[in-house]
Computed example of a mutant assay.
Amino acid sequence: MKIKIIIVDDESHARSFLKKLCNHLYNDKIEIVDECDSVKKAVISIKKHNPDIVFLDIQMPEENGFGLFKYFETVEFDTIFTTAHKEYAIDAIKNSALDYLIKPIDIKDFKLAISRFFKAKLDRVNLDRYKLLAENIANQNTGKERIVFASKTGFEVVQANTIIFCKSDGAYTIVHTLDKKYFTSKSFKETCELLHSSNFLRVHRSFLININFINSFRSDEFILEMITGDKIPVSDKSFTKKELIDAISK
């Protein structure tokens, strides 16, 4: 059975180019079921055709491509964003979409994007990535009780007030909570940005701590001890003793 594709772009030549690539390179595997020049038309078409992949332009005059997802309670199709604007948050796009293509589209990049779809189809995780993205973007304030972290196998929903500390692990992050440890695919920088409320304090280039779980501070070694017994180094380049106490006491 062929995979069904809808192309959404307000420029006819861009739709035509993508259609030619699909037909020329994957004629036996892909069927273009519709072409749309706006988000409004795309919503109708997606509900009618139930596509496997939507090629989605971001910058369109009537409504931005990101607006498409608010019309669906559950997103059951993969999206490959297409954009000529590199200033968009590419990291966010990569975390929530199958892939993205920068215009003018390179054929090698196009083939890689399609290959990723077929690979993902083999071991797909039942994860609504678009809701995850929207939830994290809409709730940048960690006064929110739940935080959603992408993981190797899907995603983890963590109560923010149970997080004791986060530790950088290369390109990833280990999140330590009261009852378990999570290995997430978010970078440490992204994790710090997500957990930016007054309860969390970055005390070292590799450690973010929840000040509510501090047990003691050893000023001779610049070490924080958490209630779990974990010892967290404090960068003396970032804090003096007084500055650390002031930050914790706020």
Rank of each mutant, 00 (worst) to 15 (best):
S185G: 12
L194M: 15
H176D: 03
K186Y: 14
F200S: 03
S198V: 10
D179R: 06
S206W: 04
T191K: 00
R205K: 15
L195A: 04
F213K: 04
S216C: 11
I214T: 02
E193W: 09
H196E: 12
I214W: 02
I211K: 15
F188S: 02
S216V: 08
S216G: 09
F213R: 03
T184V: 08
K180P: 06
F207Q: 06
I211L: 07
S187H: 05
N199P: 11
F183A: 09
K189D: 12
H196N: 14
K181Q: 11
R202P: 01
V203M: 04
E190D: 13
N199D: 14
R202W: 06
N215A: 15
F188A: 03
L201V: 06
I214R: 00
K181E: 14
T191S: 00
E193N: 15
K180S: 12
T184E: 03
I214G: 03
L208D: 02
N210K: 01
T177S: 12
K180M: 10
F200G: 00
T191L: 01
Y182C: 08
D179N: 11
S187F: 06
N215V: 01
H176G: 00
L201A: 05
N210Q: 05
F207C: 05
R205G: 07
F207T: 04
L194W: 04
R205Y: 08
F200H: 03
F207E: 06
T191Y: 03
C192T: 10
N199R: 11
L194Y: 07
I211E: 04
H204C: 02
L178E: 13
N215M: 11
N215L: 15
N212H: 10
S187C: 07
Y182H: 13
T184R: 02
F200I: 05
T184P: 01
R205L: 06
F188G: 02
C192F: 04
I209Y: 00
S185W: 01
F213P: 00
R202I: 11
N215G: 10
V203S: 02
S198H: 11
T184D: 01
N210W: 02
T191Q: 01
H176K: 07
S198P: 09
D179P: 08
R205H: 08
E190M: 07
K180W: 11
C192H: 05
N212I: 09
N215H: 15
F213G: 01
S187K: 02
N210H: 04
N199L: 12
F200D: 00
L195Y: 00
I211Q: 05
E190R: 03
F207D: 04
L178Y: 08
T191F: 03
S185T: 15
Y182A: 04
T177K: 05
E190L: 07
N215C: 10
R202Q: 15
C192A: 07
F188R: 03
R202V: 10
R202Y: 07
S206R: 07
N199E: 14
F183E: 08
K180D: 14
I214N: 03
H176Q: 12
F188Y: 11
L178G: 11
K180A: 09
C192N: 08
V203G: 02
E190C: 05
H196G: 09
H196T: 14
D179S: 12
F207S: 04
S216N: 10
F213C: 04
Y182L: 12
Y182T: 13
S187A: 08
E193L: 14
N212A: 11
R205E: 09
E190Q: 10
L208N: 01
R202S: 08
K186V: 12
C192D: 00
N199F: 15
H196K: 11
